[in-house]
Amino acid sequence: MGRVSRDGDSRGNAMKSGRWTGLLFVSPWLAGFLLLTAGPMLYSLYLSFTSASMLSAPVWVGADNYAAIVSEDPLFWISLTNTAYYVGVFVPLSVVLSLALAMLLRARVRGLRVFRTLFFLPSVTNVVAVAVLWLWIFNPDFGLLNSALRVFGIDGPLWMQSEEWAKPALVVMSLWGVGGMTLIFLAALQGVPAELHEAAMLDGAGAARRFFAITLPMISPSILFNTVMSLIGSFQVFTQAFVMTGTVQPGSEGGPNNATLFYVLYLYKKAFQEFRMGYASALAWILFLLTVGLTWALLRLSKSRVHYEAGHGR
């Protein structure tokens, strides 16, 4: 009994000691999280119920900011619609394109490493530099895109200055940067056991059947991961629109006719051009709740469709 108790005590002490050691190791991250993420988040939640401008003491206005955003601010709905369009078009396209690229990059061809590097390169290039580069590609007179279209007798649109084409142009540009997602798919594809494909081939399954019955289920966790990350990132689309529409003239960001006024760009304008920090904080929290809600819904919906090797569906 005494021995058991001593063993128990020493195990307990070891666990306690281990816990403290663990906490000590994670403390830099914890401190950073609490000070630089959780703290500012909570403060912004408080600010969202005030008329804060950063320069003066915040005045409590209750839910006025939220009420004004939802019921009186047409630009909120415009920016939300623009963002929904971007998310709705970009997320599925980015997942499909990056998966297709990953499959291509598995092919055993000469110079495979060069191809992989080339496809990944845009992902590590500065977004501002990419945006400026694409401004030239979209230049209606001298740009590559319209020059190529002219070869086929098509007079290309004004792209970033066209209400109809500005958003599709930004989607096209963003698709150029799917290298990161491609890399994740590539790793997932390499983890699919070859024997499953061999067995299916012996059973007479064709390439399409093997893709849908084996490859897709086996990489479904990666598909879910990429979809969730792409969804969250797409809701925060900002830099491309800010850079590509802000060079026209002062205050032109989000144009033409608010066609590229994405949610975070609108939030930025409220916070840093009009200095309405309380209102902007409320906008930020609405976006946060929307993103959390959609991510949660996506995770719920995917439960039965995502295959994990442990077989628990989670």
Partner: peptide, 27 residues
């Protein structure tokens, strides 16, 4: 560039500029 009072310029331009975009595009 200071056509309006400093205190209302931003809310005016926020709503006026998109309409000007539409005017230039003749919509």
């Amino acid at each position: 560039f200071v056509r309006f009072s400093s205190f209302t310029m931003a809310p005016i331009l926020e709503r006026f500029q998109p309409l000007l975009d539409r005017l230039w595009s003749r919509s």
